[in-house]
Design a protein around this nucleic acid. Sequence first.
RNA 1: GUCCCCAUCGUCUAGCACGGCCUAGGACACCGCUCUUUCAAGGCGGCAACGCGGGUUCGAAUCCCGCUGGGGACACCA
Length: 472
Amino acid sequence: MPRLRFAPSPTGFLHIGSARTYIFNWLYARRHRGTMILRIDDTDVERNTPESLASIFDGLSWLELQWDELYHQSERLDLHRKLAYSLLERGFAYRDFTPAAAEPEEKSQGGPWLFNPGMRELSREESDRRAAAGEPFVIRFRVPRDPPVTLRFRDLVYGEQQKSTADIEDFALLRSDGRPTYHLASCADDIEMKITHIVRGQDHLTNTFKHLLIFEAAGAPLPEFAHLPLLVAPDGSKLSKRRHGAVVSVTTYRDAGFLPHAFVNFLCLLGWSPKDNREQMTREELIEAFSFEGINRSNAVVNFREDDPFDPKAVWLNAQHLRSMPVRQLAPYVRQTLEKAGLTIPYDEDRFLHVVEVIRTRYFVLTDFVTRGRAYFSDDYPITPEALQKLDEPGARALLRELADRLEACPEFTEAGVERELRGLAAERGVKAGLIINAARAILTGQTVGPSAFTVFVLLGRERVLERLRRA
RNA sequence: GUCCCCAUCGUCUAGCACGGCCUAGGACACCGCUCUUUCAAGGCGGCAACGCGGGUUCGAAUCCCGCUGGGGACACCA
């Protein structure tokens, strides 16, 4: 049984790139009846925030892709420390007493920094003595040097990878305050949780060699690795909140009225393809089709602009899902959206479903139901300038009031019945039916666009229609 | 600076592993036409790409080398 994990650090809101990583992990886990683990990597206590933690749970919950197990790294520090000391004990790591501040400078000139002089070869006795004397130290991994060795692994996405240990510095495992670093904590947990597949962003590709070293030193079996291409901005730069704002936050899409399914579908298509030209896919189809072979190796651009923060394809996909999913499935999302906007649904369930069914065919996001569709759910809706023009056509308002009287008397309030009355009125008064049709749509919905006017009459119901026509 | 990764229409991608079926396919966006007394949707059509240079080969988007461009990693951050 595969065991997958998604390990976000709660230092910022949930990023769409992280969401995509979670989705791919989840898809693989579900595809192979494995376990999806959510592990909060909160070892960096200074940068963790409760808001960020909330944003991770909010965002992931919204996606409706449930995880099976939940852990917080901060509750597992003993495990991490134990591994660090075990590595120290067995010579895979050593204490470095160099003060933290003394390190950073010799960067960017000549070769890379590999280790601090004099610390690697400190004798065990001296190291123990200085530690016992209370001198602060950091525990570093003793990366094999003289001779350097070549590390290899086969990435499920990027293929064969290799790197010489001559290019890997003696990275830290345990900080001088006793807290584990990311590399240590991550590997210790991956080992203990028996993670079988590590699926993460490509920015970790080179870190993997360090992890290989830790796994090997710990005597743990190696998991499979699959690195994902990154999501980038239209200019190719990494997505960041500072530079790109709210578009990189998952909750922005939720608040804009995206359906979780559609958003997941969209994210999947960024860097992955089922290879058979399918695009709109249900959750089940995604699970069925997912594999690492379908993942691309180059970064994918999220196509947003300053004046239009949403990728047109995301919007299109959302519209596709919105219009084609079973209405009963869509209804709860619409209901929730309306309620959130303070609107109460003035229909019984059947009529509500019918209204949604009809009007959704020209909407793109859920919030369209409260903006463009407002007149279907409230008597308090704005009239657009274009609609006003239709109403101000000569004679239009009077004709609408007259139509109201005729409809009141009309025996059957159906599309056919309404059409007969309306056309009859137009013929009698010698005007084009279009004049009344357009004016009616304008007064009934506040807009010049929308479903057939006759359909609108029936959707709203006789009472509401008469009331609105007489307002003209 | 050192190391690693990537490179097909504006964007997401198929094709590349097993060269010929590619005068490079699909989708979004855009532009027409059609349908429609509105607007969408739908249908039809159009625009638009193998980064550059060398090889290898009868033949290269597909293989090799170089270049260029882009991205990432190099913290007692994750």
